[in-house]
Design a protein around this nucleic acid. Structure first.
Length: 571
RNA sequence: GCUCCUGUAGUUCAACGGAUAGAAUGCAAGAUUGCGGAUCUUGUGAUCCAAGUUCGAUUCUUGGCAGGAGCACCA
């Protein structure tokens, strides 16, 4: 449709002997301005030396002479020189029919067809708590992965985790000091939670107590060397249960990773590359191997790649990770890493270094950063340990959802499943509703109690539409396009725009456009629902309203899927 | 001190350089003998400041002010 209108405008301009390479056609924000709008007259008026409005009138006149089919109801000149197009009843019923044909494939496009893209996100470390920052990265990464997939990309999901390092030593120190925390009686979630506590304990004394600090450094060396049986046993157990606990969370959050990259294996790969380039790209400074990025870009800074003690830093490991990613996926077109924005500058330095060694890799790397997730009450730092864990946040949210739920025809298992889906929706929607760059303040109470701008509201709209369809099925009213209403409902004017919203989210790597769009269609559908009796034997257009309801459910469920949110039939 | 990000209704967020700056929530008023009241309808209310570019700036540029993040052996 869009192309059709563009061609029409092009033809009209040609008749006026005007050549324009790029015609901007957009959906006006305000539906009263029509379904499509172009500003060509405004854009070219100056070059041609005419008043925009006058030129718009001329173009409109020319459009009128062209053969326009029945999908366009009318068009008119408005404002400073816009030409607005109003689509017809026929177009909208056709678009609803198209959505029904596509089903859950609605909104798919092929702009990334044939592209292999890896998305790395979440990245929690074994032995450390999975905190709400990980939850945020996961929500964003999973949504991006699904959106890009919907655009035809061949997506793989990757997880990078610190299986060795000081944080492990801190946790093991804690476990050695407080052996109760080694209790293996509970579920792996409970055991992982104890290990998290042990980490907090170790992290605290590392800062405050020099003696403990030395002890932890010793443990760290023993972990690397695997020289102590007791430490090895604790390590193997702790590694296993914390990783298992993460998998439980991923399952609940709807993520399945294809690749796991452990830091311990990335480090030597990176170290080889760094050491091979000392004197060329890397310099020695105070006994450490550093990269002076400011030599190449004044906005960057120097970072240590190998410490004066000879240990590779995170920078070097990232180097190895990049190498490994491209090695395991030779034909990869793009490697996306999602992290919090505190790593933005650090990553720029690393990527700069990579560009000097392997410019091909650098061109295919994209770092997407997001703001902090905060709760009422301020800061959190995983190093200091005063964190809110992802699991506790979900648990608290579930408790609140259960209080609010209408439990009439549900058994306990079903109820739990739905409460879980609603809670995950509440959290994910709070994260994905706004631009990912800036931080969010998450208020558990509000995320579920807010009406009208929340994940649960979207799910509720979907579930209610499903009830309508159930009733229609019972009365044997099937979707049909024979008899059409005269009125064009707002919901119809929004539903056909879904593919364009997906396209936008996908090309800008911004999930929030979909979140905002879903709120719009939920509101429009609820309004339609409130003002119309949809299922009615006596109403000749009931079949069309049922078709419209089906279309809404397809778009809503697909949209929620792209945000990583489940849409239960009932709730 | 330097670098990056963000400043929009009371609050939380939108707006590919375009029209009367959209929603949600809050507040005020109203609807429901129908399909799920976690609903619907109406009203209320905002671009941090100052210059510049442009036919047109919330958007781009510069300078302030305010908040967040980062800046050498942590990740």
């Amino acid at each position: 449709m869009e192309q059709k209108i563009k061609n029409l405008i092009k033809d009209a301009l040609k008749n006026l002997n005007i050549e324009v390479s790029n015609i901007l056609l957009e959906h006006p924000e305000d539906l009263t301005y029509g379904d499509y709008s172009t500003n060509v007259a405004l854009a070219i008026a100056k070059n041609i030396g005419e008043k925009p409005k006058h030129l718009a009138e001329k173009i409109a006149k020319e459009l009128k002479r062209l053969n326009i089919d029945a999908t366009i109801e009318k068009f008119e000149v408005a404002g400073a020189g816009f030409i607005n197009f109003y689509l017809s009843r026929k177009f909208f019923s056709g678009s609803v029919e198209e959505i029904l044909n596509k089903g859950f494939d609605v909104g798919k496009n092929k702009i990334l067809a044939g592209k292999k893209i890896m998305v790395e996100y979440t990245d929690p470390n074994p032995f450390k708590p999975f905190h709400i920052g990980h939850l945020m990265t996961n929500a964003i990464g999973e949504s991006l992965a699904r959106i890009l997939e919907h655009s035809g990309a061949d997506i793989s999901r990757a997880n990078y985790y610190g299986d060795v390092g000081l944080h492990v030593a801190k946790a093991i120190y804690g476990l050695l000091k407080d052996t109760d925390l080694q209790n293996k009686a509970g579920s792996h979630n409970e055991q992982a939670s104890n290990i998290g506590k042990a980490y907090v304990l170790g992290a605290e004394v590392y800062e405050s107590n020099d003696f403990a600090k030395k002890e932890i450094d010793e443990i760290n060396k023993k972990i690397y060397a695997r020289s102590n049986k007791e430490i090895n046993d604790i390590y193997d157990w702790g590694y296993k249960v914390t990783m298992e606990a993460f998998e439980d969370l991923y399952k609940m959050l709807g993520t399945k990773f294809d690749f796991y990259f452990p830091e311990s294996q990335m480090a030597p790969i990176g170290e080889d590359i760094v050491r091979a380039n000392i004197g060329k790209i890397f310099d020695e400074s105070d006994g450490a191997i550093v990269f002076k990025a400011e030599k190449y870009d004044p906005k960057l800074h120097t970072r240590v790649f190998i410490t004066s003690q000879g240990l590779p830093t995170y920078e070097t490991k990232e180097f190895g990770l990049t190498e490994e990613k491209f090695k395991t996926n030779p034909s990869m077109n793009l490697s996306i890493t999602v992290t919090a924005n505190e790593q933005a500058d650090y990553m720029k330095v690393v990527i700069k270094a990579i560009s000097l060694i392997n410019p091909e890799h650098e061109k295919k790397m994209l770092h997407i950063t997001h703001g902090m997730m905060r709760l009422e009450g301020g800061k959190m730092s995983s190093r200091r340990g005063n964190v809110i864990t992802g699991e506790s946040l979900i648990r608290d949210t579930i408790a609140l959802v259960k209080e609010k739920m209408d439990t009439r025809n549900l058994d306990e298992a079903e109820k739990n499943k739905i409460a879980e889906a609603v809670s995950v929706a509440a959290i994910k929607y709070s994260i994905l509703r706004s631009q990912i760059g800036s931080g969010i303040v998450y208020d558990v109470e509000k995320s579920v109690s807010i009406e009208g701008d929340s994940g649960p509201y979207l799910q509720y709209s979907y579930a209610r539409a499903n009830s309508v369809l159930e009733k229609a099925q019972k009365q044997n009213i099937l979707p049909d396009f024979e008899k059409l209403p005269e009125e064009i409902f707002e919901i119809e004017k929004l539903l056909y725009r879904f593919p364009k919203v997906v396209l936008r989210s996908s090309s800008l790597y911004e999930p929030h456009h979909i979140a905002n769009y879903l709120i719009e269609i939920a509101r429009a559908y609820n309004s339609f629902y409130g003002n119309n009796l949809i299922v009615s034997k006596d109403d000749p257009i009931s079949s069309y309203k049922v078709a419209l309801t089906y279309a809404f459910t397809f778009v809503m469920k697909t949209g929620l899927y792209l945000l990583g949110i489940e849409a239960p039939q009932k709730m």
